[in-house]
């Protein structure tokens, strides 16, 4: 169908330039709109932009302002101060919590990318039929409820959960293993499992793009499979690896559900603390400050990461 239409249009006489297209004369504004493509584009875009402005830009500005306020009983003291930021910088609990969040999602990111790379490699190079079927199969669980997938891990790792009860009924252990649930490891395992699709897709795209003749050239010039992988395939797939790292690291640093269900006190992350400030503790300005600080940290780490990888790529090239 698309090809047929394509052919039809190709044999049609050349189109007149846009300015000469037949149009109905309807006043000045219509003429202006017809002439000015940019204006028409933005006009068409305006409902979407309006929603995004109401939903993102304005809330962000207010969040930023709120972070400079302080709590006064049940009200806010609206004089702008750096009190909250000073507290975040000076009280060790905030630093520790931030460091732990970044560490947990950092480890989860590396684990996920490392485990997904061979899978993406397999689909890109070794699956010849039904590639799309494979990709759908891999990404399908990602679209199902995040809450339920995390909940499933709670069922698996729980004190009387699947692993413990299975090991006990097999007679391999006598008492349930306590470290499975409510630990950083539990959070990392769950995050790695839940975000796998976010890693697979960019990895697959970058591997699929690699010109196969380069691999043949490497083989012809005497590289074995291992040398070929490290000297050709891996460097050429680096854009995918970097994209995958970003796509997992940034959203997971602020994750709430996984640490709340599986982390316990030892695996609590900054997202949980932000929620506590907006909920039970009822110190909204502090919650706002923590959100802004988290954003700044994410930006800083992303920039450093980008800078380092760019330098490394320049050195290779």
């Amino acid at each position: 169908m698309p090809e047929a239409l394509d052919r039809m249009t190709r044999f049609s006489p050349t189109h007149p330039p846009p300015g000469e297209m037949p149009r109905i004369k309807t006043g000045r504004i219509a003429t202006l709109l017809h002439r000015n493509e940019t204006l028409r584009g933005y006009l068409l875009m305006s409902p979407t932009l309006a929603i995004m402005t109401i939903g993102i830009i304005i809330p962000f500005i207010i969040l930023l302002v709120l972070s400079f306020w302080t709590r006064q009983g049940f009200e806010f003291d609206t004089t702008l101060t750096l009190t909250n930021y000073r507290r975040v910088a000076s009280e060790p609990i905030f630093g520790a919590l931030l460091a732990r969040s970044l560490w947990i999602s950092g480890v989860a990111t590396i684990t996920t990318v490392a485990l997904c790379y061979p899978m993406a490699y397999f689909v890109a190079f070794h699956v010849r039929r039904n590639k799309m079927m494979w990709l759908i199969l891999i990404t399908l669980p990602f679209w199902t409820s995040y809450l339920l997938r995390v909940f499933a891990w709670k069922v698996i790792l729980g004190y009387e959960g699947v692993i413990n009860s299975a090991l006990i009924s097999l007679g391999w252990i006598e008492a349930p293993l306590e470290f499975l649930l409510y630990s950083r490891e539990a959070v990392i395992i769950t995050l790695a499992h839940a975000w796998a699709a976010f890693a697979i897709l960019p990895l697959y795209v970058s591997l699929e793009k690699i010109d196969k003749s380069l691999l043949e050239a490497a083989t012809d010039l005497g590289d074995g499979p291992v040398a070929r992988f490290f000297r050709v395939t891996l460097p050429l797939s680096m854009p995918g690896v970097i994209a995958a790292c970003f796509l997992i690291f940034i959203p997971t640093t602020g994750d709430y559900i996984t640490p709340a269900l599986l982390g316990g006190p030892d695996g609590m992350m900054i997202g949980n603390f932000i929620q506590v400030q907006f909920g039970p503790v009822n110190n909204w300005p502090m919650g706002a400050t923590l959100s802004i600080v988290l954003m700044l940290w994410i930006c800083a780490i992303a920039l450093v990461f980008l800078f380092v990888t760019r330098k490394a790529q320049e050195r290779i090239a």
């Binding site: 993102i56 602020g254 709430y256 997202g271 907006f278």
Partner: peptide, 10 residues
């Protein structure tokens, strides 16, 4: 990519 919790609280 931005953590959902930030949009939520904002």
């Amino acid at each position: 990519v931005i953590p959902g919790i930030i949009f939520g609280v904002a």
